[in-house]
Amino acid sequence: MIHLQDISVRYRLIRERRSTFQSHLINYFKGKRMETETLWALKNISIDVPEGESLGIIGHNGAGKSTLLKVVSGVIKPVEGSVQVKGQIAPLIELSAGFDPELTGRENIYLNASILGFSRKEIDNKFDRIVEFSELQEFVDSPLKNYSSGMISRLGFSIATEVDPDILIIDEVLSVGDVSFKRKSMERILEFRKKGITIFFVSHNMDEIMTICSKVLWLDHGSKKMTGEPEAVISAYESYHMLPR
């Protein structure tokens, strides 16, 4: 169960204006290194997500979707509001973040799974299933720098979904991989849904949102614009942005 109450998150926005060396130097001695501005990435957001719900989050670029996911997964602590999250979280946020190109696929599986908090033994047990799902058996002992980007995302998806989480966080990652792997990952996510795992799903692909989500939250400039049934919210969102369907 996830309960967010009046969450606000503030970022510092740095502005580096191009300037002449001279004015730069003068500013430097005046103590003005950089101009910063505050940006409210989220403003007074409250959501309740009961166990087993799959919540889709939509909105324009910079609307605060990823920030909301970061608050849920505990990466960002909001300046205001309270966060209650119960259960083991598996983040599927930009899969390559934990990979190292110099290490082999095998070494990267261990590294990445330990980033998610697993012990050596648990990873040993999951290892074969991870490799099997990723279909990368022949490459597992080659360094990751020899992988294609599609292969890397397949590996990342396989690791993150072998976790048996209570809450799965997916941030625009389904657009990777080839058609057959995309279908496979979609099936796996739907399987999670059937098992009653809570899902947070960010995507710009409305068809995916329709397939996966039981409820949709529409964010606009950090504020909650609308929340409700997928059909209703998506059609409102699309007519707001005048997207032909």
Partner: peptide, 20 residues
């Protein structure tokens, strides 16, 4: 302490990469 496997992997990665 719970993330000791990560600690181990980070150390191993550093050594492997430096001399590989």
């Amino acid at each position: 302490l719970r993330y000791k496997e990560l600690l181990r992997n980070l150390v191993a990665r550093d050594i492997k990469k430096r001399y590989k």
